[in-house]
Amino acid sequence: MNIFRLAGDMTHLISVLVLLLKIYATKSCSGISLKTQELYAMVFLARYLDLFSDFISLYNTVMKLVFIGSSLAIVWCMRYHRVVRRSYDRELDTFRYWILVGACFTLALVLHEKFSFQEVFWAFSIYLEAVAILPQLVLLQRSGNVDNLTGQYVFFLGAYRAFYILNWIYRYLTEPRFTRWISCVSGLVQTALYADFFYYYFISWKNNAKLQLPA
C-alpha cells in the first residue's frame, strides 16, 4: 500500500459517501444516472469475485464489501424507494449501456492476463469501469445545471482513478516486475473521459459559479 493508492481509495470512498449523502439528505436522485450506478454495481460484482476466496487484508475485504454494498443500495434506492425513485430523470437517462457491457466483455475475452473465469471477469470489470461514467456525463449535459453534491460526486469519482495512475507509476518504479497494463491503460482512458468535466468543474469553482456543462 502506498500513499497514492490510499488517497485513491479514500477519494473513491468519499465519492460514494457524497452520493449517499445527496440521496439521503435530499431524498432525491435528480441528476444521478441510474445506468452509471448499475454499471458500477456490475463492475464491483465482477471484480470482487475473489472476495471469499483470496483474503488479502481486512482493509481490502472491508472496502470491497463497502463498494459492493453501497452500489447495490444506491441502485435499489433509485429503483424502488418510493420517495427517491420519483426524482429519477428517467427520460434523460437513456444511454443504451448494454452496448458498453457487450463490448467490454468481448474485449475481456480477447485481452486478459490469464484465460480463467476470474481473470476474464476481472478484465471485464476494468474495461467496464473505464466507460461506466458515460451515462452520468451524458445526463449531466442533458440536465443542464448540476447541483453541488452531484458535481462533487463526479469530481471525486474521477479523481480517485487519477490517484491510482500515480500509484501504478510509483509501483512500477519501486517494485521489480510490476506491470498492470490492463489497469493502467484502462485507468488512463477512464481519467481522460473526465477531462472536460474537470475543466468545467474548475471554471465553475474559479468563478464561484454554478457548474454548467455545455449541451
Binding site: 481509495d9 488479502i56 487484508s57 481490502n60 472496502m63 490469464k114 476481472w122 498492470r180 489497469s183
Partner: peptide, 10 residues
C-alpha cells in the same frame, strides 16, 4: 506453476 498475479488493489 505460474504465480497468479495477486489482485491486491481495489
Amino acid at each position: 506453476q505460474e504465480i497468479k498475479t495477486q489482485k491486491d488493489e481495489l
